[in-house]
């Protein structure tokens, strides 16, 4: 029986005076890749950040692993097996790769940490080479690797990815998505927010479409790929 790892129940969030999310309900089950697609400004990042508690939802409830996390402080929410690769990567550019990974694995036990490090080096051999290099001196693609690796250091159950392909060259995007595929193969539950609807829908088991803060469509990845409206709006006809 698959568990529901993440559940949004009628969540509404305002960002200042703007109603960013309205009555959003969705689910992510164990071992799935679920993707959220939508136009720029549709509210995708707000949805992810609302999950993390920053900003807190005004209405509705968020459940993680069956427990309600709505209203809890961000640092508490993010200590329980959820890890995020945020929009813009947000690695610590003044810190080395090693230190960035340290920060990701802040609460991890020594054994788990060593294991995670080995895993991360297998996924991204480049990072082992550049272990002592400062984040700020790395390319966009390398920084994305650091960001993902950092998230993996805490051995999360649920991995949140916010626009991982943003600003990257097509070859690099390819690599990143291959890594995401590998992670799913390892059994990780992934919630992927993406503007690159094509790649995302190819990869995902299920997808939600967000328009102006509302969920307007929800189907399997394959079905959404061939859906007329989706094709017109997000897949270039």
């Amino acid at each position: 029986m698959t568990q529901t790892v993440l559940k949004f129940e009628n969540v509404s969030t305002a960002y200042g005076k703007v109603q960013a999310l309205e009555d959003v309900s969705l689910e992510v089950n164990e071992g799935e890749i679920v993707t959220l697609i939508g136009a720029n400004g549709a509210g995708k990042t707000t949805l992810l950040m609302s999950l993390c508690g920053d900003p807190q939802p005004q209405k509705g409830k968020v459940f993680y692993d069956g427990e309600e996390i709505t209203g809890k402080p961000t640092s508490e929410i993010m200590r329980n097996g959820i890890a995020i690769v945020p929009e813009g990567r947000r690695i610590f550019s003044r810190m080395t790769v090693e230190e960035n990974l340290n920060m990701g694995g802040f609460f991890t036990s020594k054994e788990d940490y060593d294991e995670a490090l080995k895993y991360v080096f297998r996924l991204f051999p480049r990072l082992e080479e550049r272990f002592d290099q400062r984040g700020g001196t790395m390319s966009g693609g390398e920084q994305q690797m650091v960001a993902i690796a950092r998230a993996l250091m805490s051995k999360p159950n649920l991995l949140l990815l916010d626009e991982p392909s943003l600003g990257l060259a097509p070859i690099v995007i390819q690599q990143i998505f291959e890594v995401i595929e590998q992670l799913r193969a390892q059994g990780m539950t992934i919630f992927l927010v993406e503007q690159n609807a094509n790649q995302a829908l190819k990869l995902a088991d299920r997808g939600y479409v967000l328009e102006n803060g509302k969920i307007v469509m929800h189907d399997s990845g394959d079905n959404l790929l061939v859906n007329e409206d989706v094709r017109k709006a997000y897949l270039g006809g």
């Binding site: 640092s75 995020i84 610590f92 810190m95 340290n102 920060m103 990701g104």
Partner: peptide, 19 residues
């Protein structure tokens, strides 16, 4: 390191679960 992380990006440090 946590201090340095906070001074660079307070929000991100929060997102890593650090109080």
């Amino acid at each position: 390191r946590a201090c340095r992380a906070c001074s660079e990006d307070l929000g991100m440090t929060n997102l890593l679960g650090i109080n």
